Amino acid sequence: MNVFKQLFKSLYSPKDIASYRNQGIGKTILYVFLLSLISVLPSVFYMNGALKEAVQMASESLNELPEFTIENGQLHSEAKEPLTIQEGSFSIIFDPTGAMDSSTVSEMGDGIALLKNEIVLSAGGGINTAAYSMLGNEPISKQDLSELLASSHSALPIIISLLAGTVFLVNSALKFIEVSVLALFGLLLKNILARPLQYRHVWRMAAYSVTLPTLFFTVMDLLKTPVPYGFVLNWTIALIVLLLAIQEIPQKDKPSLA
């Protein structure tokens, strides 16, 4: 059975999830990467649109900002307080004072912010930051940034690809951690239910048990719909699915060596 059929069956069939416990570990790892890829699609989609809009808006609005330089990893300007330029639903924030941080920017919706020590892109509820120190030691002026933005349109596909790759790798690491922790809870459940399972079997089942909450929250992210108590809901659904899958295993079933 291919991974896409497994994905579909994992949405509703604990019995099928239980049957995956003896498959090769490589296929299960591939499945976790597939779930990670699916879960980052909304973030990448909104990040792509926001980054393109940010470059366009920044190019048009840069003249409205005070003179500044970026030097030694910090933003320097004579401005004494933060400045916000609002264009529709998109915001450009300029704050050389250090009064704002990335969490403050995220509360303001989609936008780009030049903060004291970093540049921040907020898109689709996600935050991406880049420290000025990554730009090197050479001072960058407002004019330099204007010229950089003018030439950045051709480099956007590369930039977006790099950001998307980074988001995917981070999300994959978190997904593997989630599956591994869920499998530890699964060991407790299998002991309570007296099912003859080893950690490797439970880990495989845990990987498929997170399918339903992963796809649910992916759809919610795509619709930009916040889910109250999302963390608790995610773990509750995954644990219930794993519990139902463990119950599908006969108590006298001998675990395979595969």
Rank of each mutant, 00 (worst) to 15 (best):
105 V>P: 01
93 I>Y: 08
97 T>I: 14
76 H>P: 09
56 Q>C: 03
20 Y>C: 13
103 S>F: 15
6 Q>F: 11
33 F>S: 12
73 G>W: 10
16 D>K: 10
76 H>L: 14
60 E>C: 04
65 L>M: 11
52 K>Q: 15
34 L>P: 07
58 A>E: 10
107 E>D: 06
95 D>H: 07
40 V>P: 04
78 E>A: 14
101 D>K: 11
96 P>L: 03
109 G>C: 13
9 K>W: 14
110 D>C: 08
34 L>N: 05
4 F>G: 05
44 V>M: 01
71 E>G: 08
40 V>T: 06
20 Y>F: 15
41 L>T: 06
109 G>N: 04
72 N>F: 07
45 F>V: 09
1 M>I: 14
90 F>P: 02
11 L>A: 07
94 F>E: 00
48 N>H: 07
5 K>G: 10
61 S>G: 14
19 S>K: 11
29 I>F: 05
69 T>S: 13
26 G>E: 12
92 I>H: 04
44 V>F: 02
34 L>K: 03
42 P>L: 02
115 L>I: 11
38 I>P: 05
61 S>Q: 14
50 A>L: 00
12 Y>R: 10
76 H>Y: 11
4 F>H: 11
75 L>I: 05
52 K>P: 08
108 M>N: 04
100 M>Q: 10
41 L>Q: 00
84 T>Q: 09
103 S>Q: 15
100 M>C: 10
71 E>Q: 12
16 D>E: 15
28 T>H: 03
111 G>T: 05
38 I>E: 04
58 A>N: 02
73 G>D: 12
46 Y>P: 08
105 V>M: 00
79 A>G: 11
89 S>G: 05
54 A>W: 00
31 Y>D: 03
119 I>H: 03
108 M>L: 10
74 Q>M: 14
115 L>F: 05
62 L>M: 13
74 Q>H: 12
104 T>R: 12
96 P>Q: 09
43 S>C: 10
71 E>H: 13
19 S>E: 15
10 S>V: 01
95 D>V: 07
55 V>F: 15
105 V>L: 04
93 I>C: 07
2 N>M: 10
25 I>H: 08
21 R>C: 00
35 L>R: 00
119 I>C: 13
24 G>I: 02
9 K>I: 13
108 M>P: 00
60 E>I: 09
85 I>G: 02
80 K>D: 13
41 L>S: 01
107 E>Q: 07
28 T>M: 01
80 K>M: 04
78 E>W: 06
55 V>G: 12
73 G>Y: 10
88 G>W: 00
87 E>I: 01
74 Q>N: 13
84 T>R: 12
90 F>G: 01
43 S>M: 14
81 E>V: 04
112 I>Y: 06
115 L>S: 04
77 S>G: 05
117 N>M: 07
94 F>G: 04
45 F>R: 09
